[in-house]
């Protein structure tokens, strides 16, 4: 997985040099061209397909994250500017399904960037992520939202 990503980035750089222009736009085009080239010359076709799927999932995750960020930002703005504070905050133990350190870090960072939730601590045995919620109505419901959202994407990428 990592070597494939590395190879793809080298291809993207090669594309930039061929175009004689190192810019984000050329890099993205080069990345896509490299990706399709890798699909046409597979070392093992199954593995290339899996890599392709992971890249698609990652792009989907970025869009999903931006969407969540906008919605949650609006929610927090409303809560802060409301004439009276009706928030009940608390720290919730979130049971982790992920076991990969990098992906847990990514999950914790995305949770912290999304307004309304803030990761406080990861249990050393990777059992729980402790999340501070600005406004918690139903603990089960809040946990389910993260499970079906961010963590579902990350689990699919981790496969």
């Amino acid at each position: 997985m990592v070597t494939r990503l590395f190879f793809n980035i080298i291809l993207a750089f090669a594309w930039c040099l061929l175009q004689d222009e190192i810019s984000l736009r050329q890099f993205v085009i080069g990345f896509l061209v490299g990706l399709s080239a890798m699909l046409f010359f597979p070392r093992s076709f199954h593995q290339e397909r899996r890599y392709f799927r992971k890249v698609t999932l990652s792009v989907q995750l970025v869009f999903f994250f931006v969407k969540e960020l906008l919605i949650a930002n609006w929610t927090v703005v409303r809560q802060v500017l409301a004439p009276e504070l009706k928030i009940q905050s608390g720290i919730v133990a979130y049971p982790l399904s992920l076991q990969n350190d990098v992906l847990i870090t990514l999950l914790a960072n995305m949770i912290t960037l999304t307004p309304g939730t803030l990761s406080v601590e990861v249990a050393p045995d990777r059992q729980f992520l402790f999340i501070h919620f600005l406004d918690v109505d139903d603990v089960e419901e809040e946990i389910r939202i993260i499970k079906d959202g961010f963590e579902r994407y990350l689990l699919l990428i981790a496969q």
Binding site: Q88, S89, V92, V136
Partner: peptide
């Protein structure tokens, strides 16, 4: 605050 699982842990 309503819940504090962290304290228990």
């Amino acid at each position: 605050g309503v819940v504090d699982d962290f304290k228990k842990w």
